[in-house]
């Protein structure tokens, strides 16, 4: 956890001119509910490039009701492929993350009132390398809608390794641009 926090602070301290805040639906296998918050940085020197590099610390959460909650801390390094004549652009990147999983293992079913009692959980820790591909569309000078597909692997845990797939869609808001720009 401490290392993740340091990584985040490092990312935030980079001298970057473009900074975007992303809020998105983050669906494990598309339909298991989740949400993600990301902070996108583009180093000043590359901001105007056709293919600017981006650094993106992210925090996410996804869950299956009555089964598990997963918390993701991820750093994504990627590139945007822009066409100045178009309002949309592509992006791709590689991520390295950590997932903290809280999973219900058992509980007591009360036969009188039907309630679940004494819910027991196990906690699992995973590393989560991933690759992603996204499509972004400007909806105003300050904001983009985006759709992103991420394929990853939950691994190096006491729990079995498993493939992950996320479908993400949300909005990115440019924190530095003024709305009249």
């Amino acid at each position: 956890m401490r290392n993740i926090a340091i990584l985040f602070l490092l990312a935030l301290s980079i001298n970057a001119s473009a900074q975007k805040l992303g809020i998105s639906y983050f669906g494990h296998y598309a339909i298991l509910p989740g949400a993600k918050l990301s902070y996108q940085l583009t180093p000043s020197s590359l901001e105007l490039a056709k293919k600017p590099l981006i650094l993106q610390p992210e925090v996410g959460w996804f869950m299956e009701p009555d089964n598990y909650h997963d918390f993701l801390f991820n750093v994504n390094v990627g590139q945007q492929i822009k066409n100045v004549n178009k309002k949309s652009y592509w992006s791709y990147g590689l991520g390295l993350g950590y997932i903290l999983e809280s999973k219900i293992t058992s509980f007591s079913q009360n036969l009188g009132n039907g309630n679940r009692e004494n819910v027991e959980r196990d906690t699992f820790h995973f590393f989560h390398p991933s690759a992603n591909f996204g499509w972004h569309s400007n909806i105003s000078s300050k904001s983009d809608l985006f759709l992103k597909y991420t394929l990853g692997y939950k691994m190096l845990s006491e729990a079995p390794s498993v493939l992950t797939m996320f479908l993400e869609f949300g909005i990115e808001i440019d924190l530095k641009k003024r709305s009249d720009e």
Binding site: I104, S106, F107, S108, Q109, N110, G112, E117
Partner: peptide, 8 residues
């Protein structure tokens, strides 16, 4: 007044 332990 009874309960049954269940595996998820």
């Amino acid at each position: 007044n009874a309960s049954i332990d269940i595996i998820n």
